[in-house]
Amino acid sequence: MSEKQNKEIGKRLQDARMDQGLTIDYIQEKTKIQKRYLMAIEAGQMNDLPGDYYVQSFVSQYANVVGLDSHQLLAGELQETTGDGQRRNPTPIGPLPSRTTQHKQVVKESEFSRRYGKYAAYVPTVVVIVIVVLVLGTIWGMSHSGNTAQPHLTSSKVSVTNDASSSKKKESSSSESSNSSSKEKAQKITQVGTSTTEYDLKNAPSDGSSLSITAGTSNAWVSVSSDGTQSWAATLPTGTSHTVKIAKGISKVSISLGNAPQTTVKVNGKSFNFNPQNDTTQTKTITLNIKD
Rank of each mutant, 00 (worst) to 15 (best):
V128F: 04
K4L: 15
A120G: 01
G83H: 07
K183N: 15
S256D: 12
K104I: 03
V267S: 02
Q72H: 04
S225A: 15
S156E: 10
K104G: 06
K170H: 11
S218H: 08
T31Q: 02
P205K: 09
L78S: 14
Q230M: 12
S174I: 07
V224T: 04
I139F: 03
K248T: 13
D15F: 04
D19P: 00
A149F: 06
A16I: 08
Q5A: 14
I286Q: 13
E42K: 04
V65S: 03
T283W: 09
V107A: 11
E171S: 12
S177G: 15
Q102C: 05
N147E: 09
A233G: 12
T125A: 13
I9K: 02
S181I: 02
F272W: 11
R99V: 06
W232G: 04
A43M: 06
S182W: 00
S172A: 13
Y116C: 02
Q20K: 07
I290T: 05
G117M: 06
S210W: 03
I27D: 01
T197R: 12
E109W: 10
V106K: 05
V224W: 01
S226C: 14
D227W: 06
A186T: 11
L74V: 04
P151H: 10
I290A: 10
N6A: 15
Q262P: 00
E111I: 14
T148Y: 05
V65D: 03
Q277V: 05
G146V: 02
K104W: 10
Y62D: 01
G21P: 06
P237M: 08
Q230Y: 00
K157D: 13
G10C: 05
K30M: 14
T101P: 00
S165Q: 14
Q86F: 05
